[in-house]
């Protein structure tokens, strides 16, 4: 378990060094995108329309923050991750289209995303679910917000962050997936649990 401090834009080479269980902290630019922003970004891509910013080498955070406006300035009050599996239907295309290097969320992602991360060079960083203030304190500035018509949770927020983490590398760019490994172990444990409870499988 090594600890890395990465600065955006992150290169493919830096990403390829990371292994599951490593801990990373990110400094630089990240965007938030949940279900609706993923959908819209991919629609833009198909239509050849540019996104509000170039995402190459950046991090995408599965997050719908609590925000408040002070004058003209948005402030992130609480900004923990949302469940990433909902974005599994978009993420392989998203990584391929926009070359993001780090996907941040909670709960892990599936095989399709894991394969895309191996192919294009990206990792999944698990941020502790619910640890919203820990996240908000690492957001030093909200550069802007795009697509606010989707509602504040679903909009695309552009954050400047400093040492955003700890993120556990739960999917690396070599096909390893910590969540799927845990799931395998859980399957093995099922028999012991049934035995203890006196149940038949």
């Amino acid at each position: 378990m090594a600890v890395y401090h990465l600065k955006t834009p992150i290169s493919e080479e830096e990403i390829r060094k990371l292994k599951v269980n490593d801990v990373i902290y990110i400094t630089g630019t990240m965007i938030t995108a949940r279900d609706q922003a993923h959908r819209r970004a991919l629609e833009y891509f198909k239509q050849g329309k540019p996104l509000p910013l170039n995402l190459e080498g950046l991090a995408v955070f599965h997050c719908g923050p609590v925000v408040k406006k002070e004058g003209e300035k948005w402030i992130a009050v609480a900004a923990g991750p949302t469940t990433s599996t909902r974005m599994d239907i978009f993420e392989d295309e998203f990584i391929k289209a926009f070359k993001v290097r780090v996907v941040i969320g909670k709960g892990g992602m599936g095989k399709k995303t894991t394969d895309a991360m191996a192919k294009y060079g990206a990792v999944y960083g698990a941020f502790t679910g619910g640890a919203a203030i820990l996240a908000a304190k690492a957001i030093k500035n909200i550069r802007s917000v795009e697509w606010l018509d989707l509602g504040t949770p679903e909009a695309m927020w552009i954050f400047e962050v400093e040492d955003f983490g700890p993120l556990v590398v739960a999917i690396d760019s070599h096909g390893n997936n910590l969540f799927l490994d845990v799931q395998k172990k859980v399957e093995e444990n099922r028999q012991k649990i049934y035995q203890k409870l006196g149940l038949s499988l």
Binding site: P65, A131, A132
Partner: peptide, 14 residues
Amino acid sequence: ELAEKYQAPICQDT
């Protein structure tokens, strides 16, 4: 601890 200190919601999903 941070939530208590800054009087902010523990989780963004309130």
